[in-house]
Nucleic acid binder design. Structure first.
Lengths: 258, 258
DNA sequence: CGGGCATTTGACATTTCTCAAAGGCAGTGG
DNA sequence: CCACTGCCTTTGAGAAATGTCAAATGCCCG
């Protein structure tokens, strides 16, 4: 279960902030360079004027600090958000109180897509480190989407993509395959954002990785050690260096289907 | 791996059929009573005229016979479809040729939603028994969705819902919990369509159930026998009678989160 | 009636989990 | 600056669930 260092921030944070936050960093368009959603919209038929219409819907919110919740299971839904910086974990608690990690969200990725069906978020979202977000009011973006076919299409695509992604980890794979797929996935997602595909720092605890992959933390630990012994990986606490990406990709192949 | 009793039907079937098929059964609106999608649209703000605009996009296709493919991994995507009758299995083959069942689709449910992101279907869809479908051209329905906020919203909701559903089975649950959740799910989905929640016939083989739940067929068999010995279930080949739905729901509780 | 599958059973193998404990890094307070 | 405390992580040994393999059974359909 996640700790919440300052629960009082929660109510004040995700719900609307003052309009001023939009230009807090002095450049309302700056998120374009860090927000894959916005970028994708450009490449899917939105021109500059249309993109501006999208921009006025955006609120920059945060920062959230590690352990702070962005939203909680049951909170009223009215916005999706793109991660600008930091990383976010989404999870649910089952009725026995057990945590189930649904995913990790890196810069450029959207959170809250699974809330569109319903009036409430169906999961919790917590910051793993210092997190800034772009908030998109969903009612407003829906109205805009009706006017801008490119935006509508992009939203459909993003939703559709997540359906496929969720099925990814669902197969019955060995612990090593799962972990390889996780590492390859992190590598690819980070490199898309301009980070090194081979050297990076994990923002989540081993227990979170294990929970996400449906393994015991001990199994994750042992597999990482084995990868290190085989020269595939260099592990130093949360700092990773992938020494043989090809080997990991081969292991992860059947999962990633790429 | 699925057999395809008549591969030649494939190319001719899912792609457009003659417009005449819309009224083949003499009642262009008849699918409303069997298609949850259409029903949901009504209850989400579409009036009769708007629904008619939706109807002209619809083509009734089929029937497909057991083993026939509705579409295949890699086929060009341009339509989603609602199951009118029968049931459909979706699956992928990994590069080692192993089948992975993604889901089963009963009357009223949509297939092809995970294809919207991309120009090709990312999986195969095969009829498990005799199947009729309503085909919705996706480009056309997108255009209509831009005009009808209720339809757009409904599409967003359906996509979002599938993201959540995919995460459902992803947890690490015991064989009994998985099978209980599967049975409860079937029961609920069938009763939504007006069938008995306690007596029904499975349209899929044990191996498909096992594959879907990521269990060995033997494990499914043993679990069903155990349920029968406990008086929870009566099993006769593919005919099931649920004797103690409450017990199954209790087992499935943490998975279904209901 | 016979062939081909799907399903069930039993015995056994193996992966992964569980439990218990030690090690190590980080932040706190003296 | 150092010791302390707490949490995350790693290790090891044993247990349990599930998978694998092989074979028998029974159903469906030609």
């Amino acid at each position: 279960m996640s700790t919440d260092t300052d629960a009082t921030l929660r109510a004040a944070s995700f719900p609307k902030t003052s309009p001023g936050t939009l230009s807090d960093d002095g450049d309302a368009l700056s998120f374009c360079t860090t927000c894959a959603f916005s970028n994708a919209c450009i490449s899917h038929g939105l021109d500059k004027d249309q993109l501006n219409e999208l921009h006025v819907l955006v609120e920059h919110i945060g920062p959230f600090h590690a352990g702070e919740h962005i939203f909680r299971d049951g909170d009223a839904f009215d916005a999706i958000a793109a991660v600008r910086s930091g990383s976010v974990k989404t999870y649910v608690l089952d009725r026995d109180g057990n945590e189930h990690v649904l995913g990790f969200h890196l810069p450029g990725e959207l959170i809250g897509l699974n809330a569109i069906d319903g009036d409430h978020y169906p999961c919790n979202a917590v910051a793993l480190d210092t997190v800034s977000l772009c908030r998109f009011s969903f009612p407003k973006i829906s109205i805009l989407a009706a006017k801008l076919p490119g935006l509508q299409r992009q939203l459909f695509r993003l939703l559709s993509r997540d359906i496929g992604k969720a099925a990814l980890m669902a197969g019955d794979w060995t612990a090593e395959q799962r972990i390889a797929a996780f590492l390859v996935g992190m590598s690819r997602r980070l490199s898309e954002r301009g980070y090194s595909p081979t050297r990076f720092q994990l923002s989540m605890a081993r227990t979170d990785i294990a929970n996400y992959l449906r393994l015991a933390p001990e199994t994750v630990s042992r597999a990482l050690r084995k990868f290190q012994e085989e020269g595939v990986l260099h592990v130093d606490r949360r700092n990773l260096e992938i020494l043989d990406l090809t080997k990991l990709e081969t292991l992860a192949n059947p999962i990633l289907r790429t």
